[in-house]
């Protein structure tokens, strides 16, 4: 018997894995992919709760999160391309001109 808690704990696990990937890795593309994984975990929470409450509002919120993720991926990858053009690297530790 699968309850809502199975889905909620699975999404917590996915969110934590995405957080770990975003914090630990130095490759900026893997950091961006980990942020996508975190947004997916949030979507899974919304869909699970809306299934068990029998309302469809969570599906609409998941749709909006997908649109925000698409915009974030487009802008993030454009920033990565323009930074790679000037610095010739994709390691986050090499981009420290904003550090005080």
């Amino acid at each position: 018997m699968i309850t809502i808690h199975h889905y909620l704990i699975l999404s917590a696990l996915l969110f934590t894995l995405g957080l770990l990937g975003a914090v630990l890795r130095k490759n900026i593309l893997i950091v961006l992919m980990s942020i996508e994984v975190m947004m997916n975990a949030i979507n899974l929470t919304f869909i699970a709760v809306s299934r068990y409450l029998r309302v469809m509002d969570g599906h609409v919120v998941a749709f909006f999160v997908m649109a925000v993720a698409a915009a974030e991926a487009a802008i993030g990858l454009a920033i990565v391309v323009s930074l790679f053009r000037t610095r010739q690297t994709i390691k986050t530790t090499d981009w420290r001109m904003m550090r005080g």
Partner: peptide, 18 residues
């Protein structure tokens, strides 16, 4: 998992968009 949660539209969007 979305299909199991009876959300077929979001599942299709997941495959298409993500």
């Amino acid at each position: 998992l979305y299909v199991l949660l009876s959300a077929p539209f979001v599942a299709v969007l997941q495959v298409l968009v993500y």
